Simulated assay, not measured.
Amino acid sequence: MIDGPYGAPAQDYKQYEIVLLVGLGIGATPMISIVKDILNNVKAKENEEGNTIEEGTRSSQNKKTHLSNFKTRKAYFYWVTGEQGFFDWFKGVMNEVSEEDHYGVIDIHNHLTSIFEEGDSRSTLIAALQSLNYAKNGIDIVAGTPVKSHFARPNWRSVYKHVEANHPNKRVGVFYCGNAAPVEELRKLASDYSHNSKTNTKFDFHKENF
Rank of each mutant, 00 (worst) to 15 (best):
H162F: 11
T124Y: 12
D37H: 13
A8D: 10
P9I: 03
G7T: 13
N155H: 05
Q130T: 13
A165R: 08
E184V: 12
N155A: 05
S191H: 14
Y103E: 12
I115L: 01
S59R: 04
G82K: 14
I126Q: 07
P168K: 07
A143P: 03
S131R: 15
L112F: 08
A127F: 12
E117Q: 10
K14P: 00
V93L: 06
A75T: 01
G92E: 00
Y13P: 03
V172W: 00
P182M: 07
F77H: 01
V93S: 01
L21A: 08
K63S: 00
N41E: 13
N62C: 09
K63M: 05
V42N: 07
Q15V: 01
S33C: 05
I106D: 04
S149Y: 02
S114Y: 10
G23S: 09
M1H: 14
N41G: 15
S121T: 01
L129F: 15
S59M: 06
I139S: 12
D192T: 08
H102K: 15
E99Y: 05
F90L: 06
R122S: 08
L129A: 15
R122D: 03
N47L: 10
F87W: 06
W156K: 05
D88V: 07
E99T: 10
N95E: 14
G50A: 14
S59I: 01
T81F: 08
D120G: 08
V163G: 00
T52A: 13
F77D: 02
G4N: 06
E54H: 13
K14V: 10
V93Q: 09
E46C: 12
I141C: 04
K91L: 10
D37T: 09
T81L: 02
T113R: 10
Y176K: 08
N209H: 11
G119S: 07
P154H: 11
L189V: 04
S121F: 07
D140N: 13
G56T: 11
K91R: 09
N133G: 11
F77Y: 05
S158R: 11
L186R: 09
D101S: 06
A152I: 01
S98E: 10
S191V: 09
P182Y: 06
D107W: 07
V105I: 11
A10V: 14
R58M: 13
I115R: 02
T81E: 02
L186D: 06
A127C: 08
E117A: 07
F210H: 12
L129N: 15
A10Q: 03
E184M: 12
G138I: 11
G4A: 03
K198I: 03
V159K: 04
